[in-house]
Design a protein around this nucleic acid. Structure first.
Ligand code: FES
Ligand code: FES
Lengths: 144, 144
DNA sequence: CTTTTATCGGACAAATTTGTCCACTTTAAT
DNA sequence: ATTAAAGTGGACAAATTTGTCCGATAAAAG
Protein backbone atom coordinates (compact mmCIF):
# COMPACT_ATOMS: atom_id res chain seq x y z
CA UNK A 1 0.00 0.00 0.00
CA UNK A 2 2.65 2.50 1.10
CA UNK A 3 6.44 2.49 0.81
CA UNK A 4 8.43 1.28 3.78
CA UNK A 5 9.68 4.83 4.26
CA UNK A 6 6.09 5.98 4.56
CA UNK A 7 5.23 3.25 7.04
CA UNK A 8 8.21 4.24 9.18
CA UNK A 9 7.14 7.87 8.86
CA UNK A 10 3.64 7.20 10.12
CA UNK A 11 4.82 5.00 12.99
CA UNK A 12 7.42 7.61 13.96
CA UNK A 13 4.87 10.42 13.85
CA UNK A 14 2.48 8.50 16.08
CA UNK A 15 5.25 7.86 18.59
CA UNK A 16 6.42 11.47 18.60
CA UNK A 17 2.83 12.64 18.92
CA UNK A 18 2.22 10.40 21.91
CA UNK A 19 5.26 11.76 23.73
CA UNK A 20 4.52 15.33 22.69
CA UNK A 21 1.11 15.04 24.31
CA UNK A 22 2.95 14.22 27.51
CA UNK A 23 5.14 17.29 26.99
CA UNK A 24 8.22 15.32 26.04
CA UNK A 25 10.76 15.50 23.27
CA UNK A 26 12.24 12.32 21.86
CA UNK A 27 15.63 11.61 20.31
CA UNK A 28 16.23 9.86 17.01
CA UNK A 29 17.50 6.86 18.94
CA UNK A 30 14.32 6.66 20.97
CA UNK A 31 12.16 6.90 17.87
CA UNK A 32 14.08 4.20 16.02
CA UNK A 33 13.91 1.98 19.05
CA UNK A 34 10.22 2.58 19.65
CA UNK A 35 9.19 1.74 16.11
CA UNK A 36 11.93 -0.81 15.40
CA UNK A 37 13.45 0.91 12.39
CA UNK A 38 16.99 1.55 11.14
CA UNK A 39 18.24 4.69 12.84
CA UNK A 40 19.93 6.46 9.92
CA UNK A 41 17.09 5.71 7.56
CA UNK A 42 14.58 6.97 10.08
CA UNK A 43 16.64 10.13 10.32
CA UNK A 44 16.13 10.83 6.61
CA UNK A 45 12.41 10.34 6.95
CA UNK A 46 12.16 12.64 9.96
CA UNK A 47 14.12 15.28 8.07
CA UNK A 48 11.53 15.12 5.34
CA UNK A 49 8.66 15.38 7.80
CA UNK A 50 10.48 18.26 9.46
CA UNK A 51 10.87 20.14 6.18
CA UNK A 52 7.15 19.62 5.58
CA UNK A 53 6.55 21.08 9.04
CA UNK A 54 4.77 17.99 10.26
CA UNK A 55 7.21 17.43 13.09
CA UNK A 56 9.59 19.95 14.67
CA UNK A 57 13.21 19.21 15.43
CA UNK A 58 15.67 20.81 17.83
CA UNK A 59 19.42 20.42 17.67
CA UNK A 60 21.98 20.33 20.43
CA UNK A 61 21.94 18.71 23.86
CA UNK A 62 18.41 17.98 25.02
CA UNK A 63 17.34 18.33 21.42
CA UNK A 64 15.01 15.95 19.68
CA UNK A 65 11.72 15.72 17.83
CA UNK A 66 8.30 16.90 18.84
CA UNK A 67 4.97 17.95 17.43
CA UNK A 68 3.76 21.33 18.71
CA UNK A 69 0.44 21.78 20.53
CA UNK A 70 -1.32 23.40 17.58
CA UNK A 71 0.08 21.03 15.01
CA UNK A 72 -0.89 17.94 16.92
CA UNK A 73 -4.56 18.79 16.61
CA UNK A 74 -4.29 19.30 12.87
CA UNK A 75 -1.91 16.75 11.41
CA UNK A 76 -3.80 14.16 9.36
CA UNK A 77 -2.53 10.84 8.14
CA UNK A 78 -2.73 11.96 4.54
CA UNK A 79 -0.20 14.77 5.09
CA UNK A 80 2.44 12.26 6.12
CA UNK A 81 1.63 9.99 3.20
CA UNK A 82 1.77 12.92 0.83
CA UNK A 83 5.06 14.21 2.26
CA UNK A 84 6.80 10.87 1.75
CA UNK A 85 5.04 8.98 -1.05
CA UNK A 86 3.66 11.96 -2.95
CA UNK A 87 0.33 11.80 -4.73
CA UNK A 88 0.63 8.30 -6.15
CA UNK A 89 -2.03 7.05 -3.74
CA UNK A 90 -4.39 9.69 -5.07
CA UNK A 91 -3.52 9.81 -8.74
CA UNK A 92 -2.32 6.29 -9.39
CA UNK A 93 -4.30 3.84 -11.53
CA UNK A 94 -4.89 0.45 -9.95
CA UNK A 95 -3.76 -1.27 -13.13
CA UNK A 96 -0.71 0.93 -13.60
CA UNK A 97 -1.86 3.22 -16.40
CA UNK A 98 0.08 6.48 -16.34
CA UNK A 99 -2.66 8.28 -14.43
CA UNK A 100 -6.09 7.36 -13.15
CA UNK A 101 -8.39 9.20 -15.52
CA UNK A 102 -12.13 8.64 -15.53
CA UNK A 103 -12.32 10.02 -19.07
CA UNK A 104 -10.21 7.15 -20.38
CA UNK A 105 -10.47 4.56 -17.64
CA UNK A 106 -8.83 1.18 -17.26
CA UNK A 107 -11.21 -1.81 -17.14
CA UNK A 108 -11.12 -1.88 -13.33
CA UNK A 109 -11.39 1.86 -12.79
CA UNK A 110 -14.85 1.70 -11.30
CA UNK A 111 -13.91 -0.98 -8.82
CA UNK A 112 -10.67 0.71 -7.79
CA UNK A 113 -12.14 4.17 -7.53
CA UNK A 114 -14.54 3.04 -4.83
CA UNK A 115 -11.71 1.64 -2.75
CA UNK A 116 -9.35 4.52 -3.37
CA UNK A 117 -11.93 7.15 -2.50
CA UNK A 118 -12.56 5.42 0.77
CA UNK A 119 -8.85 5.18 1.51
CA UNK A 120 -8.50 8.86 0.68
CA UNK A 121 -11.41 9.77 2.94
CA UNK A 122 -9.91 7.73 5.75
CA UNK A 123 -6.47 9.32 5.39
CA UNK A 124 -7.95 12.81 5.26
CA UNK A 125 -10.08 12.44 8.36
CA UNK A 126 -7.75 10.51 10.66
CA UNK A 127 -5.59 12.63 12.94
CA UNK A 128 -2.26 11.42 14.23
CA UNK A 129 -3.50 12.35 17.67
CA UNK A 130 -6.39 9.93 17.44
CA UNK A 131 -3.97 7.15 16.62
CA UNK A 132 -2.03 7.67 19.85
CA UNK A 133 -5.01 6.83 22.05
CA UNK A 134 -4.58 3.10 22.48
CA UNK A 135 -0.80 3.22 22.86
CA UNK A 136 -0.33 3.95 26.57
CA UNK A 137 -2.87 1.31 27.56
CA UNK A 138 -1.09 -1.20 25.31
CA UNK A 139 -4.18 -1.67 23.23
CA UNK A 140 -2.14 -0.91 20.13
CA UNK A 141 1.54 -1.31 19.24
CA UNK A 142 4.19 0.35 17.12
CA UNK A 143 6.42 -2.70 16.94
CA UNK A 144 6.37 -6.40 17.71
CA UNK B 1 -1.14 -0.81 -4.38
CA UNK B 2 0.24 -3.72 -6.39
CA UNK B 3 3.66 -4.34 -7.88
CA UNK B 4 4.23 -3.36 -11.49
CA UNK B 5 4.51 -7.06 -12.32
CA UNK B 6 1.05 -7.59 -10.90
CA UNK B 7 -0.38 -4.65 -12.81
CA UNK B 8 1.06 -6.05 -16.04
CA UNK B 9 -0.33 -9.46 -15.09
CA UNK B 10 -3.86 -8.17 -14.63
CA UNK B 11 -3.79 -6.10 -17.80
CA UNK B 12 -2.40 -9.06 -19.75
CA UNK B 13 -5.04 -11.40 -18.36
CA UNK B 14 -7.83 -9.04 -19.31
CA UNK B 15 -6.47 -8.77 -22.84
CA UNK B 16 -6.05 -12.53 -23.22
CA UNK B 17 -9.52 -13.07 -21.80
CA UNK B 18 -11.07 -10.65 -24.27
CA UNK B 19 -9.47 -12.44 -27.22
CA UNK B 20 -10.24 -15.86 -25.79
CA UNK B 21 -13.92 -14.94 -25.66
CA UNK B 22 -13.64 -14.35 -29.41
CA UNK B 23 -12.00 -17.76 -29.78
CA UNK B 24 -8.55 -16.38 -30.49
CA UNK B 25 -5.08 -17.08 -29.16
CA UNK B 26 -2.61 -14.24 -28.75
CA UNK B 27 1.17 -14.17 -28.96
CA UNK B 28 3.51 -12.66 -26.42
CA UNK B 29 4.20 -9.84 -28.83
CA UNK B 30 0.52 -9.04 -29.19
CA UNK B 31 0.05 -9.02 -25.43
CA UNK B 32 3.01 -6.75 -24.80
CA UNK B 33 1.84 -4.42 -27.52
CA UNK B 34 -1.77 -4.38 -26.31
CA UNK B 35 -0.89 -3.50 -22.73
CA UNK B 36 2.24 -1.46 -23.48
CA UNK B 37 4.67 -3.52 -21.44
CA UNK B 38 8.26 -4.78 -21.93
CA UNK B 39 8.05 -8.02 -23.87
CA UNK B 40 10.57 -10.16 -21.99
CA UNK B 41 9.31 -9.04 -18.61
CA UNK B 42 5.74 -9.77 -19.63
CA UNK B 43 6.91 -13.23 -20.65
CA UNK B 44 8.06 -13.96 -17.10
CA UNK B 45 4.75 -12.84 -15.72
CA UNK B 46 2.75 -14.95 -18.17
CA UNK B 47 4.89 -17.95 -17.27
CA UNK B 48 3.94 -17.46 -13.66
CA UNK B 49 0.26 -17.14 -14.53
CA UNK B 50 0.61 -20.23 -16.69
CA UNK B 51 2.16 -22.27 -13.88
CA UNK B 52 -0.73 -21.15 -11.66
CA UNK B 53 -3.09 -22.36 -14.38
CA UNK B 54 -4.70 -18.98 -14.77
CA UNK B 55 -3.79 -18.73 -18.44
CA UNK B 56 -2.87 -21.56 -20.81
CA UNK B 57 0.09 -21.41 -23.15
CA UNK B 58 0.88 -23.31 -26.34
CA UNK B 59 4.28 -23.58 -27.93
CA UNK B 60 5.25 -23.83 -31.55
CA UNK B 61 3.78 -22.24 -34.66
CA UNK B 62 0.30 -20.86 -34.06
CA UNK B 63 1.09 -21.05 -30.38
CA UNK B 64 0.25 -18.34 -27.91
CA UNK B 65 -1.75 -17.64 -24.79
CA UNK B 66 -5.41 -18.19 -24.05
CA UNK B 67 -7.85 -18.73 -21.22
CA UNK B 68 -10.03 -21.78 -21.64
CA UNK B 69 -13.84 -21.62 -21.71
CA UNK B 70 -14.28 -23.02 -18.21
CA UNK B 71 -11.46 -21.02 -16.69
CA UNK B 72 -12.69 -17.75 -18.07
CA UNK B 73 -15.90 -17.99 -16.06
CA UNK B 74 -14.02 -18.66 -12.85
CA UNK B 75 -10.84 -16.59 -12.77
CA UNK B 76 -11.12 -13.81 -10.22
CA UNK B 77 -8.85 -10.81 -9.85
CA UNK B 78 -7.56 -12.02 -6.52
CA UNK B 79 -6.10 -15.18 -8.08
CA UNK B 80 -3.86 -13.11 -10.30
CA UNK B 81 -2.84 -10.85 -7.46
CA UNK B 82 -2.10 -13.84 -5.29
CA UNK B 83 -0.12 -15.61 -8.02
CA UNK B 84 2.17 -12.62 -8.53
CA UNK B 85 2.26 -10.59 -5.32
CA UNK B 86 1.44 -13.36 -2.87
CA UNK B 87 -0.59 -12.72 0.22
CA UNK B 88 0.91 -9.40 1.19
CA UNK B 89 -2.32 -7.62 0.23
CA UNK B 90 -4.20 -9.89 2.61
CA UNK B 91 -1.77 -10.31 5.46
CA UNK B 92 0.17 -7.08 5.33
CA UNK B 93 -0.18 -4.43 8.05
CA UNK B 94 -0.87 -0.92 6.79
CA UNK B 95 1.89 0.47 9.01
CA UNK B 96 4.40 -2.24 8.11
CA UNK B 97 4.30 -4.43 11.21
CA UNK B 98 5.42 -7.97 10.38
CA UNK B 99 1.85 -9.19 10.03
CA UNK B 100 -1.56 -7.65 10.44
CA UNK B 101 -2.78 -9.20 13.66
CA UNK B 102 -5.94 -8.03 15.39
CA UNK B 103 -4.70 -9.51 18.66
CA UNK B 104 -1.77 -7.08 18.74
CA UNK B 105 -2.85 -4.38 16.34
CA UNK B 106 -1.03 -1.30 15.10
CA UNK B 107 -2.66 2.03 15.98
CA UNK B 108 -4.34 2.26 12.58
CA UNK B 109 -5.44 -1.36 12.37
CA UNK B 110 -9.13 -0.57 12.65
CA UNK B 111 -9.01 2.03 9.90
CA UNK B 112 -6.95 -0.11 7.57
CA UNK B 113 -8.91 -3.27 8.15
CA UNK B 114 -12.07 -1.67 6.82
CA UNK B 115 -10.34 -0.66 3.61
CA UNK B 116 -8.47 -3.90 3.19
CA UNK B 117 -11.54 -6.04 3.72
CA UNK B 118 -13.33 -4.10 1.04
CA UNK B 119 -10.41 -4.45 -1.33
CA UNK B 120 -10.32 -8.16 -0.60
CA UNK B 121 -14.05 -8.49 -1.21
CA UNK B 122 -13.70 -6.62 -4.49
CA UNK B 123 -10.80 -8.76 -5.69
CA UNK B 124 -12.60 -11.95 -4.73
CA UNK B 125 -15.84 -11.13 -6.51
CA UNK B 126 -14.56 -9.52 -9.69
CA UNK B 127 -14.09 -11.89 -12.62
CA UNK B 128 -11.58 -11.20 -15.36
CA UNK B 129 -14.40 -11.79 -17.80
CA UNK B 130 -16.42 -8.92 -16.36
CA UNK B 131 -13.47 -6.60 -16.88
CA UNK B 132 -13.37 -7.32 -20.61
CA UNK B 133 -16.84 -5.93 -21.21
CA UNK B 134 -16.06 -2.31 -21.97
CA UNK B 135 -12.96 -3.03 -24.04
CA UNK B 136 -14.37 -3.68 -27.50
CA UNK B 137 -16.61 -0.62 -27.35
CA UNK B 138 -13.62 1.47 -26.28
CA UNK B 139 -15.27 2.35 -23.03
CA UNK B 140 -12.18 1.16 -21.19
CA UNK B 141 -8.51 0.92 -22.09
CA UNK B 142 -5.48 -1.26 -21.38
CA UNK B 143 -2.98 1.37 -22.39
CA UNK B 144 -2.78 5.04 -23.24
C1' DC C 1 13.46 -35.21 -40.74
C1' DT C 2 14.34 -30.51 -41.01
C1' DT C 3 12.98 -26.00 -40.46
C1' DT C 4 10.44 -22.50 -38.55
C1' DT C 5 7.87 -20.47 -34.97
C1' DA C 6 6.62 -19.92 -30.60
C1' DT C 7 7.06 -20.20 -25.30
C1' DC C 8 10.40 -21.49 -21.27
C1' DG C 9 13.84 -20.50 -18.10
C1' DG C 10 18.28 -19.17 -16.42
C1' DA C 11 21.73 -15.62 -16.21
C1' DC C 12 22.59 -11.04 -16.43
C1' DA C 13 21.86 -5.71 -16.21
C1' DA C 14 19.55 -1.44 -14.87
C1' DA C 15 16.78 1.16 -11.87
C1' DT C 16 14.66 2.03 -7.61
C1' DT C 17 14.19 1.61 -2.81
C1' DT C 18 16.14 0.71 1.45
C1' DG C 19 19.81 1.14 4.54
C1' DT C 20 24.72 2.90 6.28
C1' DC C 21 28.60 6.01 7.21
C1' DC C 22 30.69 10.08 8.38
C1' DA C 23 31.85 14.85 8.40
C1' DC C 24 29.16 19.16 9.47
C1' DT C 25 26.25 22.36 11.99
C1' DT C 26 23.71 23.88 15.86
C1' DT C 27 23.03 24.39 20.73
C1' DA C 28 23.36 23.67 25.71
C1' DA C 29 26.26 22.89 29.61
C1' DT C 30 30.70 23.38 31.83
C1' DA D 1 35.80 29.37 24.94
C1' DT D 2 35.55 24.43 25.01
C1' DT D 3 33.27 20.35 24.91
C1' DA D 4 29.64 17.20 24.30
C1' DA D 5 25.13 16.09 22.48
C1' DA D 6 22.05 16.23 19.37
C1' DG D 7 19.93 16.62 14.27
C1' DT D 8 21.53 17.54 8.98
C1' DG D 9 22.89 16.18 4.62
C1' DG D 10 25.76 14.17 1.18
C1' DA D 11 28.01 10.09 -0.53
C1' DC D 12 28.03 5.43 -0.58
C1' DA D 13 26.34 0.32 -0.20
C1' DA D 14 22.98 -3.39 -0.15
C1' DA D 15 18.71 -5.30 -1.43
C1' DT D 16 14.78 -5.60 -4.20
C1' DT D 17 12.24 -4.88 -8.25
C1' DT D 18 12.13 -4.21 -12.98
C1' DG D 19 13.83 -5.17 -17.37
C1' DT D 20 16.99 -7.71 -21.12
C1' DC D 21 19.42 -11.46 -23.58
C1' DC D 22 19.96 -15.77 -25.32
C1' DG D 23 20.09 -20.69 -25.62
C1' DA D 24 16.82 -24.63 -24.70
C1' DT D 25 12.55 -26.82 -25.55
C1' DA D 26 8.32 -27.99 -27.84
C1' DA D 27 5.23 -28.30 -31.71
C1' DA D 28 3.44 -27.51 -36.29
C1' DA D 29 4.38 -27.29 -41.25
C1' DG D 30 6.83 -28.46 -45.28
S1 FES E 1 -7.93 4.48 -14.69
FE1 FES E 1 -7.31 2.67 -13.66
S2 FES E 1 -8.06 3.05 -11.68
FE2 FES E 1 -8.78 4.82 -12.74
S1 FES F 1 -1.99 -4.61 12.50
FE1 FES F 1 -1.64 -2.89 11.26
S2 FES F 1 -3.26 -3.06 9.87
FE2 FES F 1 -3.69 -4.73 11.17
Amino acid sequence: MFSKACEYGIRASIFIAERSLMGMKVSLKEVANAIDSPEAYTSKILQKLSRHEIVSSEKGPNGGYLIGPQQIEKVMLNEIVFAIDGDKVYQGCGLGLPKCDGAKPCPAHHQFKIIRDELKEMLETTTIKSLTLGLSESLTFLKR
